[in-house]
Design a protein around this nucleic acid. Structure first.
Lengths: 332, 332
DNA sequence: TTGTATGCGTTATCAA
DNA sequence: TTGATAACGCATACAA
């Protein structure tokens, strides 16, 4: 049998309540009994059962990170940031991946707070709408959103408008006239914002938006990047720059396919990515890209969540926006 | 206030026990009351509190993965595998990172089972010695080791000797004479085994081991890879192949630095990595590497753990070894 | 300063 | 088929 608080109590000759008070550093306990209890705890190798404690305290000391999947470099970096901050606290991290339909995602999120498995939630999922946030509030379950702004919940994100602007403006200043932008699906916050930055930069420089220059993809993948470049070549289009606002991996696909068609980069065509994954330094030419401080975002998101959990802040409408930066390498 | 089993009971006009039996599909409940209870559960949006259930059941339905850090692509791939299997079960995954000293690591591991936070442990940490395994056994806490064999605990690993052999033998067959191997610290199971494979391949081909060709690192990182290559250049060494048995990420660092010094790969020097991360396909040249089926290892490890937890198997000495394969691309 | 009593939300045993 | 009761391990208000 595992040793419980009662075992300690009976060994020392006090009650469980006393032992509990010693554990929780209650000042009203005499030195003498405190020492005896502590000694017994040592000897019997006692550790308080976390489930018992959780039940009475109403806290699990667990927080979770929810994402559609953890297969991306983005989520890895985020986990890194969260983890780094978490190790100084008493909290543990659980990962919930909601692979599958939006409905399934909703179910998982609901389970999380109704079953009280965690004290707070960090979410990178898409289905976090106002209704769901309302339910979280009703259940008093703190939540911080990452990369997605929804009214009523605090959020950590990157200034994607600025990211889109920086890249586009740089290309224009380099003399590029016909700039393709590759984006995720319409409606995805990052895609819409980056597009807005792209269009603003064009406008500020007295240029028109050409709808043909807006290309969309779904998985942000290497393969899609190749397909996009292949189509541009097959269509016989003359394009002097591509801004892969859908990330570095896609940009790498574009690069690979461009090489296969003997298109020289950056001489014939400029290429800019988004993310600044470290492999962006490894291609030839090395990729010019927009850097997002993902790890810092993870830390910040966790800090916000812990503040809410521990009631140091009730501010549920705070949006922290990180500044992206242009990293100039060889591809543009 | 959150809705509990009692709220349902009083609403329907039965006791909590009855509601509990309905939830747990006890057959002795009449259709009539079952329906009434189910309806109330729906209406009041009731979900059983997981903490309360855990306390009485003595199970948390949580398993954890322990690693020094989750900042590596290796651990992420493993998480992917585990996660994929886990989503069909009632279990949840927690991540514990034990960054810091070995002593700290020990403390965290002990906490895990003494506090009964989880039903089972998957461990990738180094400090899992016989003594610790003994403690796990005493506390009836199931554990499966990943990438590390220790007597008394089941384990999932890759045949690293073979991996080391495959790469080295291939380089020799390609006519390389002066092959550097990059390894983790002596004592780390994967490092020692890969080294053994390297030395066996040299021996089988009638070549001598040159101690200068064995280089060690700590973090398996991109930066360390760069440092290693820089040092080789600065020392004016003539090396015609590097086998980064410390992984693809390190190999990428080597690649980046080699490029910076205009060393052509594979013409001037062959380069082989280890892991087969998907980014290995994205570099120029694409990386030749030893593939470990990391994701499958994660799935297998989880299956073993769940079998032990659910008492379907008590076999604590099983070692499952996966076969690595040589993936030939452009760097060697 | 310490003990008694109670409750956290659930399941399980037994009696009705 | 259902209800009453105890139990899981711990923390806390109140009494002593």
């Amino acid at each position: 049998m595992r040793v419980t608080i009662k075992d300690i109590a009976s060994k020392v000759g006090v009650t469980a309540a006393t032992v509990s008070m010693v554990i929780n550093n209650n000042k009203k306990i005499s030195e003498a009994t405190r020492d005896k209890v502590l000694k017994a705890i040592q000897e019997m190798n006692y550790h308080p059962n976390y489930i018992g404690r959780s039940l009475v305290m109403g806290k699990t000391e667990n927080i979770c990170l929810v994402a559609t999947s953890f297969a991306s470099v983005f989520s890895l970096e985020l986990v890194k940031g969260v983890e780094q901050r978490l190790c100084d606290t008493k909290y543990n991290l659980s990962l919930y991946s909601t692979r599958g339909s939006a409905e399934n995602e909703r179910e998982i999120l609901k389970k999380i707070f109704y079953e009280r498995r965690v004290d707070g939630v960090l979410s990178m999922t898409a289905t976090f709408d106002k209704r769901l946030i309302e339910e979280f509030k009703n259940q008093e379950m703190p939540v911080v959103l990452v990369e997605q702004v929804t009214e009523g919940a605090p959020c950590v994100k990157v200034d994607n408008v600025k990211g889109g602007y920086l890249a586009t403006d740089y290309l224009i200043k380099k003399g590029r006239k016909d700039i393709v932008i590759v984006l995720g699906q319409k409606g995805a916050a990052n895609a819409d914002e980056r597009q807005a930055g792209y269009e603003k930069a064009l406008g500020d420089n007295g240029m028109q938006v050409n709808e043909d220059n807006i290309i969309r993809l779904i998985h942000y993948s290497f393969e899609e990047g190749k397909e996009i470049m292949k189509k541009i070549v097959n269509d016989g289009r003359k394009v002097d720059a591509i801004f892969s606002a859908a990330g570095d991996v896609c940009a790498m696909g574009i690069l690979a396919e461009a090489k296969a068609h003997n298109i020289r980069i950056p001489e014939d065509m400029s290429l800019i990515g988004f993310d600044d994954l470290y492999m962006a330094t490894l291609t030839t030419p090395a990729l010019t890209t927009i850097k997002q401080p993902i790890e810092e975002m993870g830390m910040q998101a966790l800090d916000m969540l812990l503040n809410i959990i521990e009631k140091k802040s009730g501010d549920t409408s705070r949006v922290i926006s990180f500044e992206p930066t242009l990293i100039i390498r060889d591809s543009a």
